[in-house]
């Protein structure tokens, strides 16, 4: 048994730099493999629906006829299954978190391919 065991650790900590980041001033750097959110290169997508079938949470909806690909980003659990199964390699996992958003619907329908938009108008 002994007293003041902690004193040594506390004293030496006083001369070390903090273990935490001075966050907003110094942003955190993430490793490239960190799973943050999914993004799509819509030009490459062939709307095959593979990602939708592989997604464990049903976050992705693909409408083949309308050429529409949509994701509900707050349903996504960042498992990377869709990106691994996409035959065209058009889904990518980015290492930053899903951006905060007030309006869920806005994100859900934000990715309509240019084609689909044109078809709708005509």
């Amino acid at each position: 048994m002994s007293f003041f065991q902690m004193a040594k650790t506390v004293l030496s900590s006083m001369f070390k730099k903090p273990a935490t980041l001075n966050y907003p001033v110094k942003p955190r750097e993430y490793d490239p493999i960190v799973r943050g959110h999914i993004e799509i290169e819509i030009e490459k997508c062939i709307f095959c629906g593979m990602c939708q079938r592989k997604c464990p949470t049903g976050a992705i909806k693909v409408e083949r006829a309308e050429k529409r690909w949509a994701i509900e980003p707050f349903d996504c659990i960042q498992c990377n299954n869709c990106a691994e199964s996409c035959p065209k390699d058009c889904l990518h996992m980015h290492n930053t978190a899903t951006p905060a958003n007030e309006n869920r619907d806005l994100i859900r329908d934000a990715r309509i391919s240019v084609d689909a938009e044109d078809n709708k108008d005509s």
Binding site: V10, A19, D31, I33, V34, R35, I77, Q78, C79, N80
Partner: peptide, 29 residues
């Protein structure tokens, strides 16, 4: 309290290893 902080400081280094090797801090998938 201060001992608690030091334990979690060390734990954070392990979590960084997870981040670096699996891509997740807590849920690795």
């Amino acid at each position: 309290e201060s001992l608690f902080m030091h334990c979690w400081r060390l734990r954070e280094e392990i979590l960084d290893l997870f981040d670096m090797t699996t891509g997740g801090r807590v849920i690795f998938s």
